[in-house]
């Protein structure tokens, strides 16, 4: 067997109970395994979260088998609540990627760049605030490229309640398109062409 280079990525998705944080983590893991045929683990924190407290999902992705499923220094941190942000920001890898919901998280006291999306507001506009997690997942997929887009889209369809597949796919695409737009915007700004 040839030695594979270590492509392990550690991810924390955090928010508050009811946002579908754990579902987002599980869809991500499923996409990695079933869609991209790689390895993945998920650790979810139970407890008072379900009633609205801090809540998080820890996901590890790798090409090799994963021996330790807990995440100590995430490469990617996705924050959908201020308290989640405060709790985990210190652990984020210095080269890591930070994704936030821009209306729910004010990224105070950090010097690093980050990617933001109004996922909750967009979900409201689509008529279902519940879908903010799916929008965020789309955004995550576009920005991080940690997993292939078709894999996540299929996993979304397989994981959401029957009858809501189309709505959730729309939500996912919205988040994904937004992510691509953000990346394009950064690229344009970097070349000094922010306007038309």
């Amino acid at each position: 067997m040839t030695e594979q280079k270590d492509t392990k990525q550690e991810i924390i998705i955090t928010g508050f109970g009811g946002q579908g944080i754990v579902l987002a983590g599980s869809i991500l893991g499923e996409a990695v395994v079933l869609g991209d045929h790689r390895q993945s683990t998920l650790v979810q924190s139970y407890g008072p979260e379900a009633r609205g407290g801090a809540c998080s999902a820890e996901v590890v992705i790798s090409d090799k088998s994963i021996h330790y499923p807990y995440v100590r220094h995430p490469d990617i941190l996705v924050c959908m609540s201020q308290s989640g942000f405060e709790k985990f920001i210190g652990q984020l890898n210095p080269e890591g990627t930070l994704l936030i919901d821009q209306d729910l998280v004010k990224p105070r006291g950090i010097a690093r760049t980050f990617f933001s999306i109004p996922s909750t507001r967009m979900a409201e506009e689509l008529g279902r605030v519940m879908m903010a997690n799916i929008i965020m997942l789309g955004f995550f997929t576009a920005i991080t490229k940690a997993v292939s887009v078709d894999a996540v889209r299929n996993a979304v369809v397989n994981s959401v309640p029957k009858g809501t597949e189309e709505m959730n796919t729309t939500a996912f695409n919205k988040g994904f398109d937004y992510g691509l737009a953000v990346l394009k915007g950064r690229e344009k700004k970097a070349t000094g062409k922010a306007g038309a």
């Binding site: 999306i117 919205k174 953000v182 306007g195």
Partner: peptide, 8 residues
């Protein structure tokens, strides 16, 4: 509508 675009 895809986002990341604004107006001065």
């Amino acid at each position: 509508d895809k986002g990341a675009v604004g107006f001065k």
